[in-house]
């Protein structure tokens, strides 16, 4: 029989955010790339209280990964990829609203 490992789930939220280095690793990018996302307002970040480092929660992680993927697959620059992500999120949001009207 297979061994079952019981593991503790930790929400990636303000109490246990993802670090700058981790986010860069998730996106297969350098930390400078993540910092440019923060500077251009593509993802939200907050400073951790202890180390004063940028930290990120779930929404920012998924946006950053999406931008990284689009940049990689379509070879577009950061601005274009960020715009694509914004538009896709808007489409999804509107589709959600639309489904309530049906």
């Amino acid at each position: 029989m297979n061994k079952v490992t019981i593991c503790t789930a930790q929400l990636v939220d303000h109490n246990a955010p993802v670090t700058l280095e981790e986010l860069a690793r998730f996106c297969e990018q350098q930390t400078d790339w993540v910092l440019s996302l923060v500077e251009q307002g593509v993802v939200a970040a907050s400073k951790s209280s202890s180390a004063g480092q940028w930290v990120f929660t779930s929404v920012s992680v998924s946006r950053a990964r999406h931008v990284a993927r689009l940049q990689r697959d379509f070879e577009v620059n950061l601005d274009a990829a960020a715009l694509m992500v914004d538009l896709m999120e808007e489409v999804r949001h509107l589709r959600g609203r639309l489904s309530l009207l049906k």
Binding site: C7, T8, A9, Q10, L11, V12, D13, A16, V61, S62
Partner: peptide, 14 residues
């Protein structure tokens, strides 16, 4: 899975 998770919420299994 903790209660109250939202769509898009990320969960870390260390």
């Amino acid at each position: 899975i903790p209660t109250g998770v939202k769509e898009g919420q990320m969960i870390r299994l260390a």
